[in-house]
Write a protein that binds this DNA or RNA. Structure first.
Length: 256
DNA sequence: TGGAATGTTCGGCT
DNA sequence: AAGCCGAACATTCC
């Protein structure tokens, strides 16, 4: 559920419930290591809530809480605890739940933001983006999913960005012309900004902190449209595997 | 019943 | 060494 636009939406809807509040404690129900790590967060004031790639960083007096939503994670304000509640942020004014069906998400206390992540997909300049592509021989789809190369994109927005740029997912990064590299950079920004404006994509069960769905899924042009006609040329959308992930593209509009 | 699902990480191979 | 592959994590849905 969570790529950059979904994480941005969760933050927008949850920060009002967190900013300026005191975190009494973090109750963790599944992973021992979370409980050990988050003990350090107890009793601290929340100074900021920000996005770092796909991480939600909650700034405290000392260090921060780093929440990753994994595949099915949610932050819910003012909701009832349920079978999939894996952790609870107990505040002086209420609770924020961390629900996660598949348990790929995480909640940890960290001294500072996680390392080894590349530049943010919305902060990188066109020139830097093109420069980074030039040194890589990997296939573009794999590179866009690699958080150490660029942070924030996931499977949906990588496919949607490549389609909008007219670039084939198997194209080798270093062989992209400067013109096409700039086009891809622009496509990434447009897709992400549009998706944020629509509150993200609700595919199976993504909701924001208030339980509201996003609506960008209706704007998807290739993601999970296998066999359906390309919205710009009519050719059937194709699905292949790249980096072990389903990859959707138009064989006519996207060239290598 | 098997496969696929918005993600990350790790070990092994070329 | 960079890049790729498969497996692993856990659960639901079709």
């Amino acid at each position: 559920m969570p790529e950059l636009p979904e994480v941005a939406t969760v933050i927008r809807t949850v920060e009002t419930h967190l900013l300026g509040r005191r975190l009494i404690e973090v109750r963790c129900f599944t992973k021992k290591s979370w409980a050990r790590s988050t003990r350090r967060a107890a009793g601290q004031l929340i100074h900021e809530v920000r996005r770092y790639g796909k991480f939600i960083l909650i700034g405290l007096d000392d260090g921060l809480l780093a929440i990753h939503l994994g595949m099915t994670g949610k932050l819910l304000a003012g909701a009832e605890r349920g079978a999939y509640t894996r952790a609870v942020l107990v505040l002086d004014t209420g609770e924020v739940l961390f629900d996660d069906v598949r348990q790929f998400g995480s909640v940890r206390w960290l001294r500072q933001a996680p390392g080894h992540l590349g530049p943010d997909a919305l902060e990188i300049s066109a020139e830097e983006f093109a420069g980074r592509l030039r040194t890589r021989k990997a296939r573009l789809k794999a590179l866009l999913l690699n958080q150490a190369f660029l942070r924030g994109l996931g499977n949906i927005y990588a496919d949607e960005s490549l389609f909008r740029a007219g670039v084939h997912p198997l194209a080798i990064a270093a062989r992209l012309s400067p013109k096409r590299a700039l086009k891809l950079h622009k496509a990434i920004r447009e897709v992400l900004f549009d998706a944020i404006a629509k509150g993200g994509s609700s595919i199976s069960d993504y909701v924001d902190a208030n339980g509201s769905q996003g609506s960008f899924q209706t704007e998807h042009r290739v993601y999970q449209r296998t066999g359906e006609p390309c919205l710009s040329c009519g050719a059937p959308i194709r699905r292949i595997l790249v980096a072990q992930r389903a990859t959707h593209y138009c064989p006519k509009c996207q060239r290598v």
